[in-house]
Design a binder for these strands. Structure first.
Lengths: 218, 218
DNA sequence: ATTTTGAATTATGAATACAATTTGAAAAGA
DNA sequence: TCTTTTCAAATTGTATTCATAATTCAAAAT
C-alpha cells in the first residue's frame, strides 16, 4: 500500500472535467447539443459553480463551445478540425515512436508487440470493437514508453477531440485491411527499434487514416 | 463600420485567463509564488468566481498548480518540463515549417525573410531584447503561414510554458552566434520552400536551444 | 393566416454567503 | 528555551443569491 503520496480527494471540478470529457468523447453528450446545466447539476449532485468551472476547462480544450449569455454547447467535430488535428497528432505519434525506440524497455517493446498480435487476431475474427480497443491500447502503450508527460498530455488532448469522429463514420473494409498492413510495418520497426522508420510509418499511417475518414464522411 | 459580426463582449474569466497568462509568462507572477486570490480580485475589480474559473483553465494548461484546500501556485519551470516540452515544440515547429512551405503566400515568405533581416541587424547591433522580439515574430509568422489552428493553439500553449525559462538564464554569446547561423540556414530553406529541409533545421535549432538552456541553467 | 410585439419565464454570468480546512501565533507543557 | 497544543483568523471550496440577458408564447397587428 502506498503511504508516501499525501492522499488528496480530487475537487469536484476535476472530477467533473474527467467525467464530462469522457461523456463527450464516447458520445453520451452529443456534438452540437446544449449542455443542460441545471439537469447535470441535479443528476451529479453538485452546484453550478464547479460544473461551470469544468465547462471553462473543457472549452479551453476545444470540447465545448461557450456562447456568451447563451450557455455552453458540445463542440461539433468539423472536417476542418480533423484536417488540422490529424497532422499534429501524426507528428506527436512520430515523436513518441522515436522516443520509444530509444527509451522503451525490452518488456515494453514485447508488450506492444503482444498487443499487436491481439489486434491482428481481432482483425482476422472481424471483431471491430475489440480491434479498436487493441489499437487504442497500442497507441497508449507507445506513448507511455516515450516517457514524456508533456507529449502525452497534448496527445491525449488532441485524441479526445478527434476520437469522436470514429462514431460518425465506419471505415471501409478495404481501408481496414490497409491499416492492418501498415501496422505490420509499424510493429516491425518497433521490434527493430528503428525510430526514424517508425516515425515515418506512424505519420503516413495517420495521414491515411485521415484520408479514409474524409472519404467516409463525405 | 462592421455590422455583420454579432457583437460579443468577452466574459470576465476569458479576459482573466489572457491577462494572468501574460503576467505569468512575462514573470510578473513569480514561479512558485502563491496566487493572492483576494488581492487579485481587488486589483482587477472582479469577484472570486471568474478568477477561480480562470485559474482552473490555467492549471489545465500547466501554468498554475492547484493544491486542494491550499489554493493555487504559479508553477515552476523545471528542467524535466523543459526536456519534455522542447522536443514537442520542435516537431510542432517542424510541421509548421513543412506546411508553411506548401501553403504560404509569396508575401508571407517575403515577410518572414524581412523579419530575419531585421533580426540579423539586431544581432549585429548586440540588441538582445530587439533580437528576441524579432525571433518571436518570426516563429509567430511561420506558425500563421502554416494555416492550422490546432497546431497554432498547441504551439502557443507549449510556448507559454517554456518561454519563462528565458527569464531564468541568459544564453551565452557563442550560442547566440550559433543560433544566428542556424537561422541563416532556416531562412534559406524558407526562401527555397524546402519543407523537409526546413523541418529538419527547425528541429535541430530547437534541440540546440534546449541544450544551451540546460547548460545555462546548470 | 402570418408576422410582430412585449410581458412573463427561464437561463446565464457574476457576486455573495457559508461551511470546511488550513494557518499561525499565543499558551501550555517539557 | 524549545516543543507541542490550542484556538481564532484567514483562506478555500462549494452553494446560493442576484442582476441581466435571452427565450418563450400569447395577444395584437398586418
Amino acid at each position: 500500500m502506498n503511504l508516501s503520496t499525501p492522499l488528496t480527494r480530487p475537487s469536484l471540478h476535476e472530477e467533473l472535467v474527467t467525467r464530462l470529457r469522457q461523456a463527450i468523447v464516447e458520445g453520451s453528450l452529443e456534438p452540437g447539443a446544449k449542455v443542460p446545466e441545471r439537469e447535470l447539476c441535479e443528476n451529479l449532485g453538485v452546484s453550478r459553480t464547479p460544473l461551470r468551472e469544468a465547462l471553462k476547462v473543457l472549452a479551453n480544450e476545444g470540447l465545448v463551445i461557450l456562447q456568451s449569455n447563451r450557455g455552453a454547447r458540445i463542440s461539433k467535430v468539423t472536417m476542418e478540425e480533423l484536417e488540422h488535428a490529424f497532422p499534429v497528432i501524426a507528428v506527436l505519434e512520430g515523436l513518441a515512436g522515436e522516443l520509444a525506440c530509444d527509451l522503451a524497455s525490452d518488456t515494453e517493446i514485447a508488450q506492444i508487440v503482444a498487443r499487436h498480435n491481439d489486434m491482428f487476431r481481432h482483425y482476422e475474427a472481424g471483431d471491430r470493437p475489440a480491434y479498436f480497443q487493441a489499437n487504442h491500447d497500442i497507441h497508449a502503450a507507445l506513448m507511455a514508453a516515450a516517457r514524456n508527460d508533456v507529449l502525452a498530455q497534448h496527445y491525449a488532448m488532441l485524441s479526445s477531440r478527434v476520437e469522436r469522429a470514429r462514431l460518425l463514420a465506419n471505415v471501409s473494409d478495404s481501408r481496414w485491411a490497409e491499416a492492418v498492413e501498415e501496422h505490420r510495418g509499424i510493429v516491425k520497426a518497433i521490434e527493430a527499434r528503428d525510430g526514424a522508420l517508425l516515425s515515418a510509418l506512424l505519420r503516413t499511417h495517420l495521414n491515411n487514416k485521415l484520408a479514409a475518414l474524409k472519404k467516409a464522411l463525405s
